[in-house]
Nucleic acid binder design. Structure first.
Lengths: 183, 183
DNA sequence: GTCTATACAGCGATAGAC
DNA sequence: GTCTATCGCTGTATAGAC
């Protein structure tokens, strides 16, 4: 059981952070939903911040790995980008990483802020790489990659605001339509 | 002074909400920053929620009016859209309305949620109207309008995450580049 | 309409036994 | 490493005088 309590706490924190944000999630909620006791929580994570760092790092790592894996997978570059953009997402729930940019606790903590920055920096870089495979020059690739990532993040915001999965799909459709019109 | 305290409270709340979100802003902070006394706050706004409704409604109203005014102003449709997208923004601060989609208090309150939904619904509708002026058919106009609004909202998320105004500019540049390539 | 004083709950964290 | 008990503080709101 040595490492089980710690693991249960991290996984539970990840879930609650995705639902309500980091600042709004209390240590008490985490221990109640994970089934571990109060002593255990404060043994493994002396402060709320320590738990936040562990859970947010994990989420960033998982989310980035999954995105990069799809973007650098097999198939033609344009098909890979389209598949990433059209990926099934619970858009109404919002992006687990993107939502952190509005979290007071995350933004006030240098380490947590850096985690979020690194995620988007790497993601844009990866998308730009796919666009360069298509022959786009570096500057144009970086701009268009930023646009692509922004469309997804904005799609999350709109779907969440309107309580409907459709805005995300419409935003991606509109973007892919413009990409195809070029070819 | 009858209405001055109320007004000061609303304006102060708007500012603090933009800085740290609604849930994270305490009634105490609002009264301290506005200079009114505790009794006054609870006289004008019996609960934190009442103040939130007043301040958020005001922000949504102001922001929408400003956007619509520019989008439906003078000049060619494509120039108006470009001007709206390239508008000077403090992107690192985030969108005063968009950030509310990650605010636990706003999302848990039906009236506040509806305010935010109405804002984006109206904004997308307005942009779609501009695109239809350019001859785009209804479905394509709605999709592309959703993309345009998503690019701005995503630009905010990226600029905030990276602590840099540049990602917003890059996202808009990438989008306008695709629009021009079509013409 | 505004003031001062106060109530009460929940949050984040600690103490000390086992 | 986990438990129960408890602490100090702040958030939200109320009471009652002026």
């Amino acid at each position: 059981m040595t490492t089980h309590a710690r693991e249960a706490l991290v996984v539970t924190a990840q879930r609650l952070y995705a639902e309500k944000g980091v600042a709004a999630t209390t240590p008490r909620e985490v221990l109640e939903h994970s089934g571990v006791g109060q002593g255990s929580l404060y043994h493994h994570f002396p402060s709320k911040r320590d738990l936040a760092v562990a859970a947010v790092s994990r989420t960033v790592e998982e989310t980035l790995r999954s995105a990069v894996s799809q973007l650098e997978g097999t198939g033609a570059p344009d098909a890979r980008l389209a598949a990433y953009l059209e990926r099934p997402r619970d858009a109404v729930a919002g992006c687990r990483v993107g939502r952190l940019t509005a979290d007071p606790l995350v933004m006030a903590d240098a380490d947590l802020h850096t985690e979020v920055a690194a995620y988007f920096s790497n993601l844009i870089q990866t998308v730009a790489g796919v666009l360069r495979e298509q022959g786009l020059e570096a500057d144009a690739a970086r701009d268009r990659a930023t646009t692509a990532v922004a469309v997804v993040q904005g799609g999350y915001v709109l779907s969440r605001a309107l309580g409907d999965q459709e805005p995300m799909r419409a935003a991606v459709r509109g973007f892919l339509g413009l990409l195809e019109a070029r070819a």
